[in-house]
Design a protein around this nucleic acid. Structure first.
Lengths: 181, 181
DNA sequence: ATCATAGTGTAGCAAGTGCTACACAAATTC
DNA sequence: GAATTTGTGTAGCACTTGCTACACTATGAT
């Protein structure tokens, strides 16, 4: 019983790693199966169809994402929103996170395309991320500050992706320097 | 000679429309050809290979994009960066622009994936967009304001895509209300 | 021990992918 | 007018896609 669940977890971890390196929306069953050390036949058997595989994979990725964030920046209040943004951007720009950023933008694009599973997961990730930020903002900052911070962060990911980190840096500096009092 | 160029323009316009509706990175030759009223055989003949088709298509899309922006918001200085951001977001959120937003996020995701043609086009679009913004900011605002504005705008696109327009709104309000003096 | 169920390997199907070979017509060059 | 280039339709190749049919074994319940 539970050995099967364990096997599926192992598969999912291996497939998640594969996806982080090779992209999510371009992934097809046979490469995924190969990465997991099994066959497409088995993936379909255990997850129903490809959507089932992707759904489970999205869940795994979302968990890995927030866990990675927690590991990189343990819970502690920063002295200012700008300082927190700086730190988070630092993490997101590290080579370790590059794969996750790629996958995240894949999820965003698929959401925009109207693919429901991706959209739901994307929304959940942002919701969790908002809480995560809120717990690290200085006492007294409200949710809107967290939302604004996250929006600037997402803009940063986009700008970085198209080679305009300069634009992102301007927004970050601006967010950090010109705070409401 | 020039009739052939005209034909290619017609093809590209039709394919661009198809792509705006059905997605860019998921597009394959036969559907593209069908949208253009020709055959995959002809697309390959005239553009060399699929990359040639996509490259020409990216160029067409970038042009259409900036032209659409110009048409929606003719050149005129806004009274504040916040007012400009509001207007641009209004345009980007209109149904007319939804397709372009989808394609844009496709380009961003492909750029992040390392696909060079997409990355180059994405960078060019942002560069052009920066100039566009700069010409509409109040006299005296510098390029960094344009960059920050655009980064917030990109963040807005992402947040809208995953159903968190609330977060985008917070960032926009924050950008508009708490300006440097 | 029997028998059903869960799990797995092999093989393959129908559809779609980018691209090409080949034959042929139209236009251009000499 | 002959020769060559340019453009186009038909057909198809080799491959990948998601998924399935079928035969088989391991495992569990009775």
């Amino acid at each position: 019983m539970s050995e099967i669940k364990a096997k599926r977890e192992k598969w999912l971890a291996a497939m998640a790693a594969h996806v982080v390196e090779h992209g999510l929306t371009t992934a097809s069953l046979r490469p995924l199966a190969k990465a997991a050390g099994t066959s497409d036949r088995m993936l379909i058997y255990h997850f129903g169809d490809k959507d089932g595989v992707i759904g489970a994979l999205l869940e795994t990725l979302a968990m890995g994402f927030t866990q990675g964030l927690d590991a990189a920046l343990p819970e502690a209040r920063f002295e200012s929103p700008g300082a927190l943004l700086h730190s988070v951007v630092g993490v997101m720009r590290s080579p370790m996170a590059a794969g996750y950023a790629r996958v995240w933008l894949d999820i965003v694009a698929a959401s925009a395309r109207g693919e429901l599973a991706y959209g739901r997961t994307g929304g959940l990730i942002i919701a969790g991320f908002t809480e995560w930020v809120l717990k690290r903002l200085p006492e007294g900052e409200d949710e809107d500050t967290a939302r604004a911070l996250l929006t600037v962060l997402e803009g940063t990911l986009v700008m970085d992706a198209v080679g305009h980190s300069d634009a992102a840096d301007a927004a970050i500096a601006w967010f950090s320097g010109d705070r409401r009092q």
